[in-house]
């Protein structure tokens, strides 16, 4: 199981802060997680999006395995 976290406007649009996904595919990546999220949440924004795997910045090609926490994030607006 992969825990997916949404932040900021993405949490507002999906109506949730987190979701759990199962990826059957071997060698899955963040891109596969995003595809599954788009299937599950109609109208999920096209981007720009940022990603993290287990609290480290990642990109669409970063590997994802069972038990990982994947964050899908809008551009940061701190400061």
């Amino acid at each position: 199981m992969i825990r997916v976290l949404f932040f900021g406007m993405l949490a507002t649009k999906t109506g949730t802060r987190e979701a759990e996904l199962e990826l059957k595919k071997q060698g899955a990546t963040v891109s596969d997680v995003l595809d599954e999220v788009r299937r599950r949440f109609d109208g999920f924004p096209d981007g720009p999006l940022l990603f993290a795997v287990n609290e480290e910045q990642a990109d669409l090609s970063s590997p994802v395995k069972d038990g990982d926490e994947v964050a899908i994030m809008p551009p940061f607006s701190g400061g």
Partner: peptide, 26 residues
């Protein structure tokens, strides 16, 4: 440091106005 903070630290700002709330697009 402040320029890089804005690009690398996962923080999101929401503005609350008399008309409602909206997330800030950087």
């Amino acid at each position: 440091c402040i320029d890089t903070l804005k690009e690398t630290v996962p923080l999101w700002k929401k503005e609350i106005t008399p008309e409602g709330e909206s997330w800030v697009v950087p």
